[in-house]
Design a protein around this nucleic acid. Structure first.
Lengths: 131, 131
DNA sequence: CTTGACCAAGTACAACTGTACGTGTAAAGT
DNA sequence: ACTTTACACGTACAGTTGTACTTGGTCAAG
C-alpha cells in the first residue's frame, strides 16, 4: 500500500487542521487551533515540517512565508488509521467497535435514525433483486 | 479519571492477549500470539513489565515463573482508547466514524441486520412510553 | 555432579514524539 | 537608518516505544 510512515497523535492533529483549511501558512494553522488547545507556534511549525518529510503535505515558499498544502486525501489516511485501530483493539473485527460506539450512548437519537436509514440503504444496495 | 498512562500499540497487543488468557506467564502469552506475528519472547517480557509499571497488570512469582494478571477491565481501557481515537480523528464526533465503518464494506450483511436490531432496541429503550 | 533448558530481571539503544529554543534574515513601522 | 516584528530553518532534548541481548540463577535430564 501507500508506504508512508503513520501519523502520530500530534501530527494527526495538525494534519486535520490543514485539511480543514485546504492550504495554509504555519501561522494560519496555528491560529486555526481551538483556543483551549495551547500549542506553540514553533511546535506547529515542527509538525508541519515532519508532515512534509513523511510525505503528507507539500510546502512551498510564497513570498516570505511557506505555505503548506495537503497532498494526501484525508479519506485515505483516516481509512488507514481506522483499519489499524480496529486491528489493534478488536483483532480486525469491525462490529464490536460499532456496537461499542453506539451502545456507549455517544450517538444521539437523531443519529440513530440516520444510521437506520444508512443501513437500509446499504441492505438494498446489496440485494439488487429487490429492485 | 483513571490516571494510568495510555497504552502504546505494542502494549495493547500484549494486553489483549493477556485479557484473553485471563492470567498467564510470559511464555504463555508469547505462545498465544498469532503465529504470523513474529515477536521475541524477551519483547513480550518487556511489554508485560511495562504494563505492570503502568498499572495495568500485576505480576506474581509462582514457583519459578512470574504470572501476570490483568488488573484493569478491558472494557474501560478500550472505552478510553476509543474516546481518544474519536477525539483525534473526528474531533469527538462518533457518527462519522460509525458511518465510515459500515460504509467501508467491512460489515457483513448479517452484521447489518444485527446492527439494525441493536438500533431498534436502543430506540425503544430511549422512548420508554412506548409501553 | 554436569550440562542444557528455561526464566527473571537488568540493560541497551535507535527511532519516534512532543515540545520548544535560538539564529539569521527580511519586511514593516518610526 | 534603526528598530521591531515575523518567520524559516536548524537544533535540542527528554520521554516513549519497539525490539532485543545479557547475566545469573534454578530445575531437570543425563
Amino acid at each position: 500500500m501507500t508506504d508512508r510512515p503513520g501519523l502520530s497523535k500530534g501530527e494527526m492533529e495538525v494534519a486535520r487542521v490543514l485539511w480543514s483549511l485546504g492550504s495554509a501558512s504555519v501561522r494560519q494553522v496555528h491560529e486555526a487551533f481551538p483556543p483551549d488547545r495551547e500549542i506553540d507556534f514553533a511546535t506547529v511549525q515542527t509538525y508541519l515540517r515532519r508532515l512534509e518529510t513523511k510525505g503528507y503535505v507539500t510546502g512551498e515558499i510564497q513570498g516570505r512565508t511557506r505555505v503548506y498544502t495537503p497532498c494526501v486525501q484525508p479519506q485515505s489516511v483516516i481509512r488507514e488509521s481506522i483499519h489499524d485501530f480496529v486491528d489493534r483493539l478488536f483483532g480486525g473485527e469491525t462490529l464490536p467497535l460499532v456496537r461499542q460506539l453506539i451502545e456507549e450512548g455517544d450517538v444521539s437519537t437523531d443519529e440513530l435514525a440516520e444510521l437506520r436509514r444508512l443501513i437500509t440503504r446499504l441492505e438494498k444496495q446489496r440485494k439488487p433483486e429487490v429492485q
